[in-house]
Computed example of a mutant assay.
Amino acid sequence: MALSTLHNVRFAGMASCVPRRVVSNLEDCPPAQRSERERLVRNIGIQTRRLCPDWQCFSDLALVATEKLLQDLQWQREEIDALIVITQSPDYLIPSTAIILQDRLGLPHSTIAFDVNLGCSGYPFGLHLLGSMVSAGGVKKALLLVGDKSGSYDDPLFSDAATATALQFDADAPPMFFDLNSDGSGHKAIFKPVGGHREPFELHHGIPIRAEDGTIDSWPGDLVLDGPAVLSFSTQRIPPAVLRTLEYAAVEKEAIDYFVFHQANRMINETIRKKLALPVEKVPSTLADYGNTSGATLPLTMTARLHETLAAGRHKLLLSGFGIGLSWGTCILDVENAVFPAIIEA
Results as ranks from 00 to 15, higher is better:
52 C>Y: 11
81 D>P: 10
61 L>F: 03
99 I>F: 10
134 V>K: 05
115 D>A: 03
79 E>M: 04
122 G>Y: 01
157 L>I: 15
70 L>T: 03
94 I>C: 14
100 I>K: 14
94 I>V: 14
62 A>W: 02
127 L>K: 04
91 D>I: 08
130 L>H: 09
75 W>Q: 03
130 L>K: 07
128 H>Y: 13
104 R>G: 08
135 S>F: 01
82 A>Y: 00
149 K>V: 04
147 G>A: 05
113 A>C: 12
149 K>Q: 05
136 A>P: 06
92 Y>T: 10
157 L>P: 05
162 A>V: 03
80 I>E: 11
102 Q>L: 12
156 P>I: 02
138 G>R: 07
122 G>V: 01
82 A>I: 03
156 P>F: 02
105 L>A: 08
95 P>C: 07
89 S>W: 06
146 V>A: 09
128 H>M: 09
103 D>H: 09
114 F>W: 12
131 G>R: 12
152 S>A: 10
137 G>L: 11
104 R>M: 10
137 G>A: 12
114 F>D: 10
57 C>N: 13
69 L>E: 02
50 R>Q: 12
115 D>W: 01
147 G>S: 08
90 P>G: 02
75 W>A: 05
120 C>R: 09
82 A>D: 00
162 A>R: 04
87 T>H: 12
74 Q>I: 03
126 G>S: 06
63 L>M: 07
84 I>W: 00
130 L>M: 11
162 A>S: 11
163 T>H: 02
102 Q>F: 07
147 G>I: 01
104 R>W: 07
140 K>M: 07
50 R>A: 11
90 P>L: 05
60 D>E: 08
62 A>F: 05
84 I>M: 07
80 I>H: 08
75 W>H: 04
73 L>D: 01
88 Q>T: 06
96 S>V: 15
154 D>W: 06
82 A>V: 01
63 L>A: 06
139 V>S: 11
81 D>T: 10
99 I>M: 15
167 L>T: 11
96 S>R: 14
85 V>I: 09
50 R>K: 13
73 L>Q: 03
108 P>N: 11
